[in-house]
Write a protein that binds this DNA or RNA. Structure first.
Lengths: 198, 198, 198, 198
DNA sequence: AATGAATGAGGGTTCATTCAT
DNA sequence: GATGAATGAACCCTCATTCAT
C-alpha cells in the first residue's frame, strides 16, 4: 500500500511528488520572508508562510544555510553562467567585468540581508560560503584575469576580496535615500582601472 | 542638602571618585568585550567582565547606544579634529582626504562590530548616528569639498554615503586573510579620482 | 497539506489529544497557583506546578488575561446562566437578585485575587473585563430591572457598579476571621431594599 | 564643638532642625507621589521628588508602612477625634455614624491606593493596621454601639468589618465614571438600618 | 513523511535594599 | 546624618531545536 516495489531499493520515490511540492512551497515562502524580514527571519515565520510545520523545514533543510542556498541556487547559477557569456560578447574584458558586477549587485540588493549573511564569520554559514562564493569566485576571477591580461586594470584585489567588497557595499543598504550602493560599487570598479588610461 | 557652605567647589563630588572609577572600569570592560563579542554582547557579559552588577550598567548608560558612544567618544573626537589638520598640512586636498579615510578605517577595523552597528537602521541606535555620524560627516564633507574644489576628484558621492561605504567595506572583516578592507578602501578612494589625471 | 482527502473530519487533530491534556494540566496548575499566590503569580510558578516549560504557557495563553479567562470560563458561564433561572423559579425578583449575588460571592471568595484583578484598570486586563463583566453585567442588570419593576428596591446602582461593589467587598478577604464578606454583601443588598417595606 | 553636653545623653538635638526639615520634605513628597502613583510608588520616585537620597528615606522610615503611617497621621487623628464630636452634636447616633463614615470615605477616596494597601494581608503592612485601624476601629465601634443602643440599626457587623468593607468599596475606584464609591457606601450604610423603621 | 507542541536557555530590564564615602 | 552608587534577584518574553504522535 505504500508504493509498489519498496522491497528492492526503497530509495525510489513513492510519494516524492508530495514532498517536492512541499519543498517548493517552502522555497517560495522562504524567499518571500527573506525579502521582508531578512535571511535571519524566525523559522516559525517561514513555516507559517508556507503553511507547514517548523519541523518540516528542518527535515528539508537541516541548517539555515541550507535553506538560503536552496532559495538562491537558481539565481547564483545564472550569475555564474553569465560570466563567460559577457566575456565572449562584450567589447572588452573590463567592460564585461563591470557588467557582471552589475548583475551581482542586482542579485544582492534585491535579497534583503543576504549580503550581510554572506560576510558573516559564523560557522553555521560555512556551507553558504562554499555554495555561493566557491561557485562565483572562479567566475569573477576569470573576468579579473582577462581584464588584467588586457592591461585595462592595475593591481587588482583577489576575486574573493572584490566580491566580498561589493557584497559589503550592498549590505544594509536598507532604503536610505542618502546611500546608493550602486553608485559606490561603480566608484569601486572605477578604482580598479589603470589610471593612465584616461 | 549637602552640607552648609559649598564654597570650595567640591560639594558635588564627595564620592564621585569611586563612581567615576567604576565607570571607567565599565568602559574598559565594555571595550574589551566589544572586541571579542561585538557591540551586541549581552549586558550580563559586560557587567561580569567589569565585576559589577548588571544594574550598574543601566545606571551609567541607560541604553546600549549610550555605552557605545561613551566607549568610542575619545577616538571619534580625535578623528573629527584630524580632518582640518590634515587639510592644512597635506600636499593636496585629495591626499588629505585619503589620509583621513585611512584614519577612519583604522578606527573601524579595530572595533569589532562597530561598523555593523553604525549602519543599522535600528531605532535604538539613533543616538549613535547622531553622535558619530553627525560629528564626522561634516568633517568628511569638508574634505570632499576641498578635493572637489581643487578638481582632483570627479563626481563624488555625498560624505554620508562615502563614509557608510567605507564603513561597510570594513564591516565583518573579521580576520579573513583573503579579505583586506584597507586595500578595497584604497581602490574605492582611487575610484573617486578624476580619471584623466593619470 | 495534511494528507489528500480530509473526508473523515479528523484531519485537524492527529495529536491534539496530547496538547489538550497538557492544556488542562495548565489550567489546573494555574487555578491552584492562583489560589495560593493570586492571579499575579509568576509565570514560572505556574509552569513549574504544571510540570511544563514556561513557553508552553505562552503558546496556549499568549497573555495572562487569556489564562485567567480560561481558568474561570466555566464558572462564569454557569453564573450567567443561573440568572434567568433564578428569576423564573424564585419567589420574587428581589429574592432572585439576592440569590444570584450570593452565587457571585461564592465565585469570588474562592478565587484568591480574582476580585482584585477584576477591578484593575491595567490595560492588560481589558480582555478580562470583556470576558467576565460583559458577560455578567447584563445578567445582573436583568435581575435589577426585574426587582425595580416589582417595586421591591429603591433607587438602584447600575449593574456594573453593584457588581464591582460586591467584587470589592470580596477582594482581599483573605481568611481574616474578623471580616466576613458575605455578611457585608448581605447588608449591601439589604440596603437596596425599599425602606418602607417593613 | 558638637553641641554642648554630648557626654551625658547625646539624645538631645544638635542638628535636629535640619533633620526635621528633611523629614517634612519627605512627607510632602511622599504625599504628592502617593496621589499620582499610589502608595506602591517606587522609593526612588519619592526620594527624587523630595530631592534626597533613597537611603534617607530608609533612615527616617525603615519600612514603607512607616512612611504611609507618617504621611496620613494627621488626617487619621482628625478622623478619630471627629467621632465623639459627631455623636455629641448630631441628631441621632445613626446619623452620626453616617456622617463619620462619609468622612472616612472622603479620606480614602482622596488617597490613591491607600484603601487597597489597608486591606492587604502583606506582613510588611502590619504596622499600618496597627496605626490606622487600631486607632479608628474603637471610634467606629463607639458609633456603632450608640446606634445599636438607640435601636436604629439591626444586627450590625463589627466595627473592623464595617470599616474594611467601606475601605474595600473605595478601593480601586479609579476615575471610572460607572463606579461611584460614595453611592455604594450609602447603600451599605442604609442596609444597616432597621428595616421596620419605614 | 509531516506535524506543531514542548522545551528551556538566554536576554533585557526594574527595584528594594545595603554600604562605602 | 546624608548621600546615591552598587547590588543581584526576579520577572517577562522569544526562539531555535527536538520529539511524540
Amino acid at each position: 500500500m505504500n508504493g509498489g516495489e519498496r522491497g528492492v531499493e526503497r530509495a525510489t520515490r513513492p510519494k516524492r511528488a508530495d514532498a517536492r511540492r512541499n519543498q517548493e512551497a517552502l522555497l517560495d515562502a522562504a524567499a518571500a520572508v527573506f525579502v521582508t524580514s531578512g535571511v535571519d527571519a524566525p523559522v516559525r515565520a517561514i513555516a507559517a508562510r508556507a503553511g507547514v510545520g517548523t519541523a518540516t523545514i528542518y527535515r528539508h533543510f537541516p541548517t539555515r544555510a541550507d535553506l538560503i542556498v536552496a532559495v538562491y541556487r537558481h539565481q547564483v547559477e545564472a550569475l555564474a553562467e553569465a560570466g563567460p557569456a559577457l566575456l565572449a560578447d562584450g567589447p572588452s574584458p573590463y567592460a564585461a567585468l563591470g557588467r557582471w558586477i552589475d548583475l551581482f549587485v542586482d542579485f544582492l540588493v534585491t535579497k534583503h540581508g543576504l549580503a550581510t549573511v554572506l560576510q558573516s564569520e559564523d560557522d553555521r554559514f560555512a556551507s553558504l560560503h562554499s555554495s555561493f562564493l566557491e561557485r562565483l569566485v572562479p567566475v569573477c576571477a576569470e573576468l579579473l584575469d582577462a581584464a588584467t591580461g588586457s592591461a585595462e586594470i592595475r593591481s587588482a584585489p583577489g576575486a574573493y576580496e572584490l566580491m566580498r567588497g561589493v557584497g559589503n557595499l550592498c549590505a544594509g543598504a536598507g532604503d536610505d535615500p542618502r546611500y546608493d550602493a550602486r553608485r559606490l560599487v561603480g566608484i569601486l570598479v572605477a578604482g580598479l582601472r589603470r589610471p593612465s588610461s584616461g
